[in-house]
């Protein structure tokens, strides 16, 4: 039953992405950007290893997710809040969880399609040389989980507000914070001249671990696939979906 409901929500939502001009515009702009970078890199191939070129694209995509992620998710719940369609949905025999999970998988699928399209460049590379397949696996798996996490986190804001622009702004800010956690950790670490150096390093490590980059840029991106990184992303997604569900619930109760 719950799977059928998730499937129904998922199908509708995904259909919307593939009928929405904005979704196409975002995908097109990204692919155009990557294409330009790719061709300029390939033209300088004579003095560079092919694998480096390949990895530039997913890494740029993960960086850009602080902008693209909120654009992908802002509509998801804010629109239902504004239109009042949520009132009817929440009087159907469906749990909030099914609704949120369905929506999330839809946007994650859309993201996966965009990410999948960048594999075109990878295929082109295989005709020129032999890229490092193992590393590529890490890069793509990481980019996929990284994207899912960003989408789940930005979706929280879409549940909170009825205003898509507000949702997008706050989402971008949140992702930037998670992205820059690494820098913050370094900054904290530099404070270790104080009397309690262990505490400071511990705190710095904690902040670092919470951030996105620590689990991608220095691990999967260089081809190191660690269970703890995968666990981090999955945990973040589940936590964010849980928070979103609670928000939808309490919004309705206050209504």
């Amino acid at each position: 039953m719950i799977l059928r409901q998730i499937w129904a929500v998922y199908k509708r939502e995904l259909g919307l992405y593939f009928r929405s001009p904005i979704a196409y515009a975002v995908a097109f702009a990204l692919l155009l950007l990557f294409g330009l970078i790719f061709s300029s890199n390939v033209s300088q191939l004579n003095n560079r290893a092919p694998a480096d070129n390949l990895n530039f694209i997913p890494s740029l995509l993960t960086f850009l997710m602080f902008l693209v992620g909120p654009l992908m998710t802002m509509r998801l719940l804010a629109e239902e809040n504004r239109e009042g369609t949520i009132e009817l949905l929440m009087t159907l025999p469906m749990s909030e969880t099914a609704f949120i999970v369905g929506k999330f998988f839809a946007v994650w699928t859309y993201y996966s399609v965009v990410l999948g399209l960048t594999l075109v460049y990878y295929l082109v590379l295989t005709t020129i040389g032999v890229p490092d397949h193992g590393r590529a696996l890490g890069v793509y798996l990481g980019a996929w989980l990284y994207g899912g996490t960003v989408l789940a986190v930005t979706m929280i804001w879409s549940a909170i507000t009825e205003d898509q622009i507000v949702a997008a702004f706050l989402g971008a800010a949140t992702v930037l914070v998670l992205y820059l956690a690494d820098l913050a950790a370094q900054f904290v670490n530099n404070l270790s001249f104080t009397e309690n150096p262990e505490f400071i390093t511990g705190l710095a490590n904690g902040i670092r671990e919470l951030g996105l980059t620590a689990h991608y840029n220095s691990t999967m991106f260089v081809g190191v696939i660690r269970a703890e990184d995968i666990a981090y992303f999955i945990f973040m997604i589940i936590a964010a979906l849980f928070i979103t569900t609670r928000i939808v619930e309490t919004r309705r109760w206050r209504a």
Binding site: R4, W7, R19, E83, G84, E87, M94
Partner: peptide
């Protein structure tokens, strides 16, 4: 509901089918 909230970008039939699937 009072405001008759509907998904305006769906056809009447698809909307009803969607609600039916959720039910």
């Amino acid at each position: 509901p009072e405001s008759v909230p509907l998904y305006r970008d769906m056809t009447a039939r698809n909307y009803l089918m969607y609600m039916g699937e959720i039910r």
